[in-house]
Design a protein around this nucleic acid. Sequence first.
DNA 1: GAAGTGAAGTTTGTATACTATGAGCACCCC
DNA 2: GGGGTGCTCATAGTATACAAACTTCACTTC
Lengths: 219, 219
Amino acid sequence: MSTPQKTRLVSRSISDQLYDVLREQILNGEVGEGEPIRQDGIAAAFEISKIPVREALVRLQQDGLVSLHPKRGFFVTPLTRKEAEDVFHLRLLIEPEATALGAQSATEEDAKKAQACLEELENAVARQDPRRGVYNRLFHLALVQPAAGPTTIHVLTLLNVTADRYVRFHMHMQDIDTRANQEHRELMACWLAGNKREIEKLMRKHIQTTLDDLRGALK
Amino acid sequence: MSTPQKTRLVSRSISDQLYDVLREQILNGEVGEGEPIRQDGIAAAFEISKIPVREALVRLQQDGLVSLHPKRGFFVTPLTRKEAEDVFHLRLLIEPEATALGAQSATEEDAKKAQACLEELENAVARQDPRRGVYNRLFHLALVQPAAGPTTIHVLTLLNVTADRYVRFHMHMQDIDTRANQEHRELMACWLAGNKREIEKLMRKHIQTTLDDLRGALK
DNA sequence: GAAGTGAAGTTTGTATACTATGAGCACCCC
DNA sequence: GGGGTGCTCATAGTATACAAACTTCACTTC
């Protein structure tokens, strides 16, 4: 029997699933910044015990999305202009180069996957999926994946998640969807062609434009 | 009554303390790479329950020091040349500039704290303290702290921790202690003077030299 | 002897239960 | 009436208990 099936199937633990759900809720602003997070409340809402809730929160804490005051609980970290600037600064340092390197060592399969991610992203945008930030991240990461080491992936994931939070909070999506779509198309074409210098420039501009828009929204 | 006491005293939870201890053990190689980590074993060793053990491990997982195979347990992530290159590459991108910015906006107090960290580091080196990697990280971070945003701090901490792991594993400390001491002195002098360009150059060289030594150790 | 099958023993992941700390409020003293 | 003191309640953090999954290994079958 052949093995075309290569997706690894594993049982995801409750805490692991909850981690994704809570992260998405925070990114969507469903729990306001600075707001306390009641472990019992979440446990009751999902009809589970506190143990997996705490594990998910601990992971989010390590991601910087919530902070923990000992014996007082977890709080959603407030959004600050300083953090926004910080995150985009780091992205500008890391992501353009990493993307260019990814293009250079991308295999046929990597290219397919990146294109699939772009399609999914465009579909999500087209149907106004509120989770399209997720697909945006996946696309950006797919461009980096072929060459990047595990730490670069991890750091960029962290940065993109936080960036996503600011974008979702301060900006009306439809305002940037069209432009972003255009830029993503250009990026993808250039990435497939493997033009290192050009990709770096495009990606830098792509991130910078988002940052400029964000600064505008922050007045 | 005056308040010269400004260190904030908080009760550290068991899981929080354990996080530090386990991280240090992994950095020291006390648990070999790829080795499984038995939750019950650790719980028994510290005479606590599994709950805080799991929380500490989840944090370490988020740091990339251990990985989790569902229903099979936590494993110490293996050291790879690729990750080492990756981590140092990122440090070279971020840390020199961040250190220079730190120097520019350092207050008198920041300077005092940085110098105190350097002293502690030198003391630790002098007495061959096995935990001197910790003080090294604290010193490097103290140089960055004055200007850096929270995310930069977080990312650099992550990178320095991982870098530390490779340095401790592959290199005999005494071989580099002397050189590092010298370089730290130079860095500190330059940092206090606030010469941006020069600091960047020195820090870049400092990190690069460590990377070169590491490459040598890796054959 | 190699490969498949099944039962016993580990170990994980989560529920439940308990302790103790912090917040909030009423009361008291001046 | 303002500030201190103790009580009550809510919540965090951890221990204990347990079900489900994985591993191991002996046993069977060809």
